[in-house]
Design a protein around this nucleic acid. Structure first.
Lengths: 213, 213
DNA sequence: GTTTTTTTATAACGGATGTTATAAATATGC
DNA sequence: GCATATTTATAACATCCGTTATAAAAAAAC
C-alpha cells in the first residue's frame, strides 16, 4: 500500500526546494553570532547555509528580516530554557543555577568556543539606530525580568524567602547576573569561571547557599 | 612683551594641522558609539571629525587603530569616574549610587538620547573575532571588578559590612548591576528607571538602604 | 624668493556589499 | 511528451568600503 509522504499538503508544482528553512535559519544565526549583524556579509550567510542569495531572499526577505527572525527564534529558545529551569519544585537556588547553566550551554558552542549571548553580542550593538531590533531586545529583557520575578514571588509564598523580600528587586539582580555572564562569555571568560560567578551571585541573592560551599 | 605660545616645542616645518587630534578622537567615539565598529563607515568618521581620510590615516593609522584608541580612552574615562565615585569617605551605598550615576551620565548623551555603554554597545560585538578588542574588554572588566572589590573590602574594614561579607562576590553583583544598566540603556530604557534599578540593587547589595526608602 | 617640509583636498583604486535579472533545472498536471 | 510552475545557479548591478596615489596649499629654513 503506497503510503503518503509525511507532509500533509500535496507536493507543490515546481522544482522542489533544496534547502531546509529551519536548518538554514539556525546556521545563519551561528554566523551572525560570530561577527554580528553589520559585520556579517550575506556571502558568509550563503556559504554557511549552502543557499544562494536568491534563495535566501525568497526564503527570508532580506538580510534585515533574516536577522530579525534569527533574533526572535533565539529569544524563544533561551526564554523557554530559562522558564523550564525555573519551573518545577526545585529549591530556589537550584532553580537559579539551572537557569544559568542553561544560559551557559547557549553561550558556549558545542566545540567549546565562547561566543556569549546572541542578543548581547549582536543585537545590542544595532539597538540604538535600529528600532525593530531595539524593540525585540527590550521585549526580551522584560520577559526575562518577569520570569525571574515570578519565580521569586513563588519562592516567597513557599517560604523560601523572608516575607519582606522584594521579588522585583531580586529579579533585577538575577537578570543582572545573567547579563554579566553573557558579557563575560563574549569577552573570553572560561565556562568554569562563569559558573563560579553564577554560584556566588545565587548565594548572595538567595541569602544562604543551597548546595556545597 | 611677546609671550611664547603655550606649546613647548618650536613650530614644525610644514603646513600646520587643521585638526585637533583629541577633539577628533572624541567625535569619532561619538560616531562609533551610535552604529558600532562594523556598522560605521570611515566616511561617517570623516564627516563627524571634519577630517579627510588621509588626515585620519596620518593621525590614527587606520580604522581599527582609531577604534582601539577610542576604546582605550573610553575605559580610562569611565574607570576614572568610577574610582572617583568610590573614593572618599562617603557611605558605601552612597558611593555605589554615585558610581552608577556617573555611568548613567556617560550612557545618556548631552541631548538625552540613550546610547548605553560604548564597550557593551560596540566592543562586545567585535570581541569574539577580534583579539585586540577582546583583550581590551576583558582587561577593563577586570579593572571594574577590582575597583568594586577594593571598595567592599574597605567597607568591611570600616564596619559598613558584616565581618563575614564576601567582597569579591559583592563586587560581582556590583559589576553585574553596572552591566545590566549599560545594556538596558542601549535598549531604550529611561534614565529615571535605570536610576531606580541601581537604587534597588544597591539596597540589596548593602543590606540596608542608606538614604530614603 | 626659492627651497624644503608637512598637511591638505580630490579623486582614484580594487574589492566587497546587498540585491536582483536571467536563464537553466526540476518538479507537477494533463 | 508538452505546457506550466517553482527553484536553482550564475552573473550582473550599482553602490559603498577601507585605503592610498597625486598634486595643490601653507608653513618654516635659508
Amino acid at each position: 500500500m503506497p503510503r503518503r509522504k509525511s507532509e500533509t499538503a500535496a507536493a507543490p508544482r515546481g522544482r522542489p526546494r533544496a534547502y531546509d528553512a529551519e536548518a538554514a535559519l539556525k546556521q545563519a544565526t551561528e554566523t551572525f553570532w560570530k561577527t554580528g549583524y553589520s559585520g556579517t556579509p550575506l556571502d558568509k550567510i550563503a556559504a554557511a547555509t549552502g543557499m544562494s542569495p536568491p534563495s535566501l531572499y525568497a526564503a527570508f526577505g532580506n538580510k534585515h528580516a533574516l536577522y530579525l527572525e534569527a533574533l526572535a527564534r533565539y529569544w524563544e529558545m533561551t526564554l523557554a530554557a530559562t522558564r523550564e529551569a525555573l519551573a518545577g519544585d526545585r529549591p530556589l537556588a537550584e532553580a537559579l543555577m539551572l537557569a544559568y547553566e542553561a544560559a551557559l550551554s547557549f553561550y558556549f558552542s558545542r566545540k567549546g568556543s565562547a561566543r556569549g549571548c546572541f542578543v548581547i553580542g549582536t543585537a545590542v550593538a544595532e539597538a540604538v539606530e535600529d528600532a525593530e531590533i531595539r524593540k525585540s531586545v527590550a521585549a526580551g529583557l522584560r520577559m526575562l525580568d518577569g520570569d525571574f520575578e515570578a519565580r521569586f514571588r513563588t519562592a516567597r509564598e513557599r517560604g523560601e524567602l523572608k516575607q519582606d523580600a522584594d521579588p522585583e528587586a531580586l529579579a533585577l539582580l538575577a537578570s543582572a547576573t545573567m547579563h554579566t555572564i553573557a558579557i563575560r562569555a563574549r569577552a573570553g571568560a572560561r565556562r568554569a569561571d562563569l559558573r563560579e560567578i553564577a554560584h556566588k551571585a545565587v548565594t548572595l541573592i538567595c541569602g544562604s547557599p543551597s548546595g556545597s560551599h
